[in-house]
Design a protein around this nucleic acid. Structure first.
Lengths: 154, 154
DNA sequence: TTGCTCCTCACGTCACGTGAGGTGGC
DNA sequence: TTGCTCCTCACGTCACGTGAGGTGGC
């Protein structure tokens, strides 16, 4: 279990780590290397840099490039639109996660209500049986002590 | 209260009703009439038509045109991007409303829990006082009747 | 007749992608 | 030296907006 978590964290780190130089990244994204430089100039992508200044693209960068590629090629969007859509998709994903969290919370609250309902039912059951026991001490006409309303602080 | 609702419904109907011919709508949206025809051909807007075939734009149409205008002029987006962004903004608005509904529901559930907590506290309180009353009937050494464990069904 | 509507066609502009050209370090 | 990197500049293409041109009904 601990090892699985470690593996996942490592994979995440790797996904964000700059490993491809521009020619490789361009081939993986099916783009011209010059296009990648252009996208960077417009702020659509920010690859890391080696100490010498060479761009280093991560797997996450390549994925993002492919999403951009789909929007421009398949939908015919320009870069201004791509930028805005990427923003909105991020917002949407965050909101989606929030909805899921709230749904789980809602379920948990429902369970809390059910648990308290059960507790109330249990307490009422106890009260009923106590009442039944008390009544047994008072069979009409056979009680040894007179029955009177209980008065507090008497 | 009923009249306020009626007013709102009327306003909504008016907002969706085709009232402006193309030259007026174009002026309200600060656009060329030909541009409006182009947007319609591309499916970005669907004005109603008079029996004679004249386009009739509603206030909602004009608002939509202004939103499109802002995206193309201020952000430099093309129409493919506008289309996608309008879709995503709709989705986002729906999800936003859902989050608000869920928040209200969550609050309501919290209140339900609080109400049941109060009921539990009340029942426990009752049980405590019943116990206290029973004890009061059994002062050691002064009871008129012998105290024995209660046996069911005896 | 004027001014609107409808339509189609064509052109100018601009964004984007890509190629060329020149530099520098493994 | 080869093949990559870096950069800037320039050109071809395409989408979009707008204008022209011709029609028809209040």
């Amino acid at each position: 279990m601990a090892s699985r978590r470690t593996t996942r964290v490592t994979a995440q780190v790797d996904r964000a780590r700059g490993v491809f130089m521009i020619s490789v990244a361009a081939e993986l994204a099916a783009m011209h290397p010059q296009t990648l430089r252009m996208y960077e100039a417009r702020g659509l992508i920010e690859p890391q840099r080696s100490p010498k200044g060479t761009r280093l693209y991560s797997q996450a960068d390549v994925d993002r490039l492919r999403r951009i590629q789909a929007m421009t090629t398949e939908l015919g969007m320009n870069l201004a639109g791509v930028e805005r859509v990427l923003e909105l998709e991020d917002k949407l994903a965050r909101l989606q996660r929030r909805v899921e969290t709230m749904e789980r919370r809602s379920d948990a609250l429902q369970e809390e209500i059910a648990a308290r309902e059960a507790e109330i039912a249990r307490l009422e059951q106890v009260r009923e049986s106590v009442r039944a026991e008390i009544v047994r001490y008072e069979p009409p006409g056979t009680s040894l002590i007179p029955i009177r309303p209980v008065r507090r602080g008497s």
